[in-house]
Design a protein around this nucleic acid. Sequence first.
DNA 1: ACAATTTGACCTGT
DNA 2: ACAGGTCAAATTGT
Length: 359
Amino acid sequence: MENMGDWEQKNLLHELTQGRELARQLQGHLSVPASSHETREFLVTKILTSYEKALSMLQWSSSVGEPQHTGGAVLRMSESPPSLAGSPRSEDSDPEHRDASRKRKAVAGWTQQVRVSPGVGLEGPLDDGYSWRKYGQKDILNAKYPRGYYRCTHRNVQGCLATKQVQRSDEDPTVFEITYRGRHTCAQGSHINPPPTSPEKLEQINNNMDGLQHHNNHQPPQNQQQSQEMLLNFQATLKVQTENLDTKEKAFPSFHFASTSNTEKQVFQAPMIDSSFVGSYSPSFMSPATSGANYFSVSPSRMSGFGGNQQHFQSCDSELTEIISAATSATNSPTVGFDFPFGQEFDPNFTFDNTGFFS
DNA sequence: ACAATTTGACCTGT
DNA sequence: ACAGGTCAAATTGT
């Protein structure tokens, strides 16, 4: 609530510190012949991510530097209240929209695509380590497969507004588009390392598969164990593709959100998502128009022993909408292990004041 | 029994 | 009216 100004600085500091830690780790790995290439590569990726984040934070504050310093009055809670049912808000949006392009503005923000190349057989979209409860499924017109709607399991309990949508790609059945929206405000376990067994994930996967597969479900639900094992050695390529809504505008490292009004735009910086996904996201800062896409190769081999550690970070992230497409699923847990080493400095308090955007 | 999922109805913005 | 998103009762799984 108070010192908002410090907030970003804090995050920046955190990011840089984390990057330093990662670099140190990498340094350590370099002297250890046993460390795998994958591990090193992964660390490098993480380091780069840290840099990117830090840079984007700087750019964000410098180029924009106005919206966020306020006490937060500017931003609205945004996001359609996930769980409100009858709240008729026939607000008048804005009379003028731009050319009704092809797609609806939807809640686009940026699209991440995580491609996992596990050889074969991995199924199910990755799970970020959070618990989700499916609350609906719908057929989308253009989509061949239905879209699944999930919300954080603790929605009612802790008011966690996080939700996600899972949609299987039309053309590449191996690809799942997962759209995350809202931030996790729950204090649930770490996404970092889904404990020994994350049945939830598997269940979800199965469900998704069921729902998403129209005809052939050639895959019996019993890849759980397999999946887990796969987790130990999988290779993933994270493809991040920033996709902005129809609002063309150039996209900067930061994310732009067009509010309902044409002229208003909120720019947000991606919160710390590092631990959420495999290689951490890395917003592609290329021109969105050209469809910037970054590919990350992540090959988590083994985490520094993570058999039973379970720390809960409550650094909830993803306050915007992230779309993640995962191919053949896979997972994230393994990689994540790398996070905790430096995660000690997560601030439970660093909550964003309110990051609402478009109202 | 409880909790999560399923599924059609309902709601809201194009 | 339609499409997408959410609710909620019924159903299924643990």
